[in-house]
């Protein structure tokens, strides 16, 4: 009993450390400038400044625009990833064709390449196409997810062959089998893949930083870095309000779909 109480104590302390930045972020976002730099930290402000801070966050920089950009970019990326990865995963898992083994070996190889490695050639290529500083520049490099292909292939292999045979007898084309049979059967895996894709691309900072300079194209991480630079550490209240707004969609999605998020991240271990 005592041991269990001790474990809880340690875990609670740990949880406090893990959650401290979130608590502080929320707390500061509610405080007026005077209280931010108070020598003694207080959780709640004595004088509420929430409206002013959040208004400032949305007016000093086009924060709403950043958020919209973020949703647009992540949505496009996931759509492209699913549209290309699912058919290939199905072809790798269930169809017999010449070159299948080679193609799969290349997927595994591509899996080993960190996403920052292709950056310089991609930048040069997009520059030559005149696509730098466009949504396309942010989206295109992420349209392929070899991780998604790999994950879905592993999952599709567990779908019984008879189910596919039955679908063929019922008159479905191979293309229709991907979307009408494999997709719903693999729904949990796809949910996990969607969560991962959302986490990665919402948070992605490295590539957008390189590909985009213009304010109206910035994704949330880029936008908030831009905000932080512009204010140079003076107005913490509005900055924390902006950070809260940027973090909120992911954190809320995580709290709502915890299982899918965690299983998705765990699936990075399916190798």
């Amino acid at each position: 009993m005592a041991r269990r109480a001790f474990t809880h104590l340690v875990l609670m302390l740990g949880a406090a450390v893990m959650l401290a930045p979130f608590v502080i972020m929320l707390s500061i976002s509610l405080k007026p400038p005077g209280e931010v730099f108070a020598p003694q930290f207080a959780l709640l402000p004595t004088q509420w400044h929430a409206v002013e801070n959040y208004t400032a966050a949305f007016t000093k920089v086009p924060l709403a625009r950043f958020l919209l950009n973020g949703f647009f970019v992540t949505l496009c990326i996931f759509a492209a990833q699913a549209l290309t990865a699912l058919p290939m995963a199905y072809a790798l898992a269930k169809l017999r064709w010449r070159g299948r083994e080679t193609a799969f070996a290349l997927v595994v190889l591509a899996l080993l390449i960190p996403p920052q490695v292709p950056a310089i050639p991609l930048y040069i290529g997009l520059w030559q196409l005149g696509l730098l500083n466009t949504y396309a520049a942010i989206i295109l490099p992420s349209t392929i997810s070899v991780f998604g292909i790999f994950l879905m292939r592993q999952f599709f292999r567990t779908v019984p062959d008879d189910l596919i045979a039955a679908a063929r007898m019922d008159g479905l084309s191979e293309w229709a089998i991907v979307w009408r049979i494999m997709l719903p059967t693999a729904a949990p895996a796809i949910a996990a893949f969607a969560c991962l894709s959302f986490i990665w691309n919402w948070n992605e900072f490295f590539w957008p930083l390189i590909a985009v300079q213009e304010e109206h194209l910035m994704t949330p991480p880029l936008g908030i870095a831009f905000f932080s630079n512009a204010e140079a550490g003076t107005s913490f209240g509005p900055l924390m309000a902006a950070a809260t707004v940027v973090t909120a969609p992911l954190a809320l999605a995580f709290l709502l779909a915890q299982r899918a998020f965690i299983s998705g991240v765990t699936m990075t271990g399916v190798k």
């Binding site: 039955a166 063929r168 007898m169 049979i181 059967t185 729904a187």
Partner: peptide, 19 residues
């Protein structure tokens, strides 16, 4: 292809679409 042969099949595992 199977769909053009006008045959119907009952599988050992039944192969019902689970969803």
């Amino acid at each position: 292809p199977p769909k053009a042969r006008d045959l119907a099949m009952v599988f050992q595992s039944y192969a019902l679409y689970p969803y």
